[in-house]
């Protein structure tokens, strides 16, 4: 076994995570290697410092309300989606009716009608283009999905 391999075992040795055979190997090596003995001592010190600490516990209410808060957030998102879809349908219908009345109105000049229709067509194409770009970005976002 290479020296570097023994060194890696030092960490598992201190953490009590070695199998019997590995533990015997490292114990035999430690008896004759001052370099590893020194490193073991330093690792032990560092481990002692870290193991003397624990994360600060949040108040108990955090755990009591944890699930409720997730449930509310999930529910709120569904209501937002439904509200947005409803609003979009109403807007679309209203817009359609407005354009229909505008075109059917004989008092408005033909040139004005054509101008407004061309403007609307431009806005629709712009909207579709932006939407397509957003969908492309969304599909290529590396954090969007879990990959393993």
């Amino acid at each position: 076994m290479k020296h570097e391999e023994y060194k890696k075992l030092l960490v598992g040795y201190l953490d009590g995570e070695l199998k019997n055979k590995e533990r015997e190997l490292i114990e035999n090596h430690l008896r004759k290697c001052p370099e590893c003995q020194k490193e073991l001592k330093e690792f032990k010190k560092l481990r002692g410092v870290m193991m003397s600490m624990k994360y600060q516990k949040p108040p108990d209410e955090v755990w009591e309300n944890y699930w409720k808060s997730i449930y509310n957030r999930l529910e709120r998102r569904i209501s937002w989606i439904l509200t947005s879809v409803g609003a979009a349908i109403l807007l679309f219908y209203g817009g359609f009716k407005l354009v229909e009345d505008f075109i059917k109105n004989p008092e408005i000049a033909l040139l004005l009608k054509i101008g407004i229709l061309v403007l609307l067509a431009g806005l629709v194409i712009l909207f579709i283009s932006i939407l397509r770009e957003r969908i492309f970005i969304f599909k290529h976002d590396k954090y969007r999905e879990v990959k393993r």
Binding site: K45, L46, G48, V49, S52, M53, Q56
Partner: peptide, 15 residues
């Protein structure tokens, strides 16, 4: 630092 010292003896032994 989100942690607190919970084991004084371990810390004293190291530092």
């Amino acid at each position: 630092a989100p942690w607190e010292i919970v084991d004084e003896s371990k810390l004293k032994e190291s530092l």
